[in-house]
């Protein structure tokens, strides 16, 4: 399964690669990284249908995660990828907006990777 992680903090790449190193090694999961909402859209245009799952931060300079979510869910109809939002700002307003825009899940930072892994299994 291919996963696109969108976050403006570069350390996120190291973190995901290390936390999922076994899954990556075993070829179960593949990760790509985009460091802004705009980059993520470019990536999705180039790799249509490739990423099954998108994990996106919300607070990013430029296009926010919620705007990205909106774009994905509106434009990529067939079939839209699963989008999970990951944010430090787990307030009710953020949560409601994300759900309204069609987010499939809403995780708060610090990320609980064991529960994230469980969720990924369900999608698989």
């Amino acid at each position: 399964m291919k996963i696109l992680v969108v976050d403006d903090e570069k350390d996120v790449q190291t973190l995901f690669e290390q936390r999922f190193r076994k899954e990556i090694k075993a070829g179960e999961l593949q990760f790509d990284f985009a460091f802004s909402g705009e980059d993520a859209l470019v990536y999705l245009n180039q790799h249509e249908q490739e990423a099954v799952l998108i994990l996106s931060d919300i607070n990013m300079p430029g296009m926010s995660g919620l705007e990205l979510l909106e774009q994905i869910k509106k434009k990529y109809h067939k079939p839209p990828p699963v989008v999970m939002m990951i944010t430090a700002y787990g307030d009710a307003e953020n949560y409601n907006t994300a759900k309204q825009l069609g987010a499939d899940d809403f995780l708060t930072k610090p990320v609980d990777f064991s529960s994230l892994k469980e969720k990924l299994k369900d999608i698989n």
Binding site: E9, L15, Q18, R19, A88, G90, K109, P110, V111, F113
Partner: peptide, 20 residues
């Protein structure tokens, strides 16, 4: 209040890198 949320960002790395 916004800043209080912001602290979760570094904590995300601290907690997870520690576990890793």
């Amino acid at each position: 209040a916004g800043i209080a949320h912001e602290i979760q960002n570094p904590l995300n790395f601290i907690n997870n890198f520690s576990e890793v």
